[in-house]
Design a protein around this nucleic acid. Sequence first.
DNA 1: CGGCGAATCGGACACCGTGTCTGATTCACT
DNA 2: AGTGAATCAGACACGGTGTCCGATTCGCCG
Lengths: 217, 217
Amino acid sequence: MSRSSPAELKALIRDFRRDQIIDVARRLFGERGTIEVPMDEIATEAGVARSTLYVYFANRDELLRACLQRMHTLLLDSVVGSWERDSSPVERLRTLVLGMLERIDDNPAFFRLTLATQGAPSPAATTVGAELDLIGLDIAGLIRDVIEQGTHSGDFRLLDADKAMTFVGQQLYGAMSVRAGDPRPAPRHEAADELCSFLLYGLAGPARTDMHTLPAS
Amino acid sequence: MSRSSPAELKALIRDFRRDQIIDVARRLFGERGTIEVPMDEIATEAGVARSTLYVYFANRDELLRACLQRMHTLLLDSVVGSWERDSSPVERLRTLVLGMLERIDDNPAFFRLTLATQGAPSPAATTVGAELDLIGLDIAGLIRDVIEQGTHSGDFRLLDADKAMTFVGQQLYGAMSVRAGDPRPAPRHEAADELCSFLLYGLAGPARTDMHTLPAS
DNA sequence: CGGCGAATCGGACACCGTGTCTGATTCACT
DNA sequence: AGTGAATCAGACACGGTGTCCGATTCGCCG
């Protein structure tokens, strides 16, 4: 134990500190936007000196990148955890949606910012953008799996997997953006159900029998 | 002509200059992101002194806001122009979608940035956000009109107008974001058709008869 | 205990962009 | 030629970034 400790423990502490800083940054960035938060404040809030910050992160952008990376893993964990247990494509779709909503609700402000950073082209966002793309690719892969499984099992209408994936992805993207900006979002499960329902109307084809309120006029 | 000219002409020139600056800013912001472009550069590129810039716009944020406002009017013009001519809700939906795609293609980078600014909470984005919200509201209104018209005429399934509006809006939002980031986007009309098709599958209910390639397996 | 080394601190520094201001200059119109 | 508005160039204070370095803390080992 004396052999592995010194080096490994050091690394552990380092990681711990890192995570601690990232959490603070994630919160602050979320609350007030990326550019609005000076490094000073992050340092103070995290209880370290500003110069120490630069020991852990080369610059502001790399810190932001680390924040995104963290959200990446959290997001995937949210989904993949329940993923394996579900079998039907409908269930999995719901799991997927629900997982993303959970992640949003966890820190909507930062999520909003995540989507925002997406669009900004800049040397900064180039580094950052790579991270974002990774998240997108992961999700896209999951969506694709669901669709293929669904069309194969006959639960979904027959459609081009690529296009379907794109559209589902777009809808998810839009839904997340809207929810992230919504001060009083609908309850998570309800929102997930509605969203899935809308997606399935398109995916599963024939109308379902929820609402027949209006006269056919 | 000597009476009205001096004052009005002055205003005209002023507006012209303003627009000229806005166009330059819109391009540069689009190319490299909002924060990445110094006021110096905008001024130089627009052929005015930096101090003159501050005569026309109180600060960076107000310049950005003006850029968004411009996109707002362009966007609405794109849509409303053809709007009146169309009668069926399906046609109008397509007009709406197509108009937005046109606007994206006109300056995708800036549009990306527009969507991006959306999410960033900050004193800056508060002013800016108001402008964005206005655009959103206008579009939402148009969507709502289409949906109500469609459900009323029987072209669409019966569904809750509010929720349908939300979902269509989300889908549009997502589609625009994706297209704005796509280096080689699909031809505009084709993209519009596909998007409408996807929306209508959900809106118009029963499956259409485009693709029956796969065996029911 | 005394001392070593790594991590941390605090603060000085140069650099850059912002927004303000001022006095000089241009230009159109009379 | 003269007047006034628009424009210009440039100086300025301010605030944030990223770098650097000497001083300090703290755990650990002889």
